[in-house]
Design a protein around this nucleic acid. Structure first.
Length: 89
DNA sequence: ATAATGACGTGAT
DNA sequence: AATCACGCCATTA
């Protein structure tokens, strides 16, 4: 049989974020939940921090309190603008 | 295996 | 409303 490697947390997170539709946003908490690791909101942030893949709309992921969190690609400011531009705000 | 890290969350000041 | 301290979790050194 083929020993298949299970998707790691980061893989699942990337996948989830990748599916966030334009004009919408998801909290770190929600993403963690959808990534089958409820409560790992913090870890999610850590992954995003290291993720430099432009294919992944990591700017659609925001904090539960409405904050922007961070953005390794222009800072929270740019992130907010981006969301606004997409009509998510 | 253990400790440190950090784009978080919540409840208490 | 703004800050703080503590808890949580996967990753990385």
């Amino acid at each position: 049989m083929k020993t298949r490697k299970l998707p790691s947390f980061s893989e699942r997170v990337r996948d989830v974020v990748l599916k966030i539709p334009k004009g919408k946003t998801m909290t770190y908490k929600e993403v963690a939940r959808r990534a089958s690791s409820s409560g790992a909101s913090r870890a999610v942030g850590n992954i995003m921090k290291k993720n430099f893949d432009r294919k992944i709309p990591c700017h659609r992921v925001i904090r539960s309190d409405g904050g922007m969190g961070g953005y390794n690609r222009g800072g929270a400011e740019s992130k907010r603008k981006l969301l606004k531009r997409e009509g998510a705000l």
